[in-house]
C-alpha cells in the first residue's frame, strides 16, 4: 500500500503541475485568471491520480501506468517552454 501511496503522491503532484502548466502555456487567458484555473484544477488532479494509483492491483503497475501518462505531459511542457 505504501508504494502505491508514494506513486500517487509523487507522480500525482508532478502530473498536476505538468498538466496545469500545459494549460497555462496553451490557453490565451489573462494571467491572474489562468493562475486561478490552475489552482482550481491542480489539487483535484493530484487527488484523482492518487485514487487511480490505489486502483491498481500492484505497485509496479501503478508506477508504470502513471509514468506513462506523466512522460508525454512533461514532453509537451518542454516543447511549449522552448517555444515560449
Amino acid at each position: 500500500m505504501w508504494s502505491r501511496t508514494f506513486a500517487g503522491l509523487i507522480i500525482g503532484l508532478l502530473l498536476s503541475v505538468s498538466i496545469v502548466l500545459n494549460l497555462n502555456l496553451l490557453l490565451p487567458i489573462k494571467e491572474d485568471t489562468m493562475l486561478l484555473i490552475g489552482l482550481l484544477l491542480a489539487f483535484p488532479i493530484w487527488a484523482g491520480i492518487q485514487v487511480w494509483a490505489y486502483s491498481f492491483t500492484s505497485a509496479k503497475k501503478a508506477w508504470l501506468k502513471l509514468s506513462l501518462v506523466l512522460i508525454p505531459s512533461v514532453l509537451i511542457n518542454a516543447i511549449l517552454l522552448s517555444l515560449r
Binding site: 503532484l13 503541475v17 496545469v20 493562475l35 489552482l39 491542480a42 489539487f43 517552454l81
Partner: peptide
C-alpha cells in the same frame, strides 16, 4: 472542505513550481 483545506495549507507547492517554471 478537502479542497479549501488543501488550498490554505499546500498552496506553497504550486507557488514554488509556478515561480520556478513560469
Amino acid at each position: 472542505y478537502a479542497f479549501s483545506g488543501l488550498v490554505f495549507n499546500l498552496l506553497i507547492i504550486y507557488q514554488i513550481s509556478y515561480a520556478v517554471v513560469l
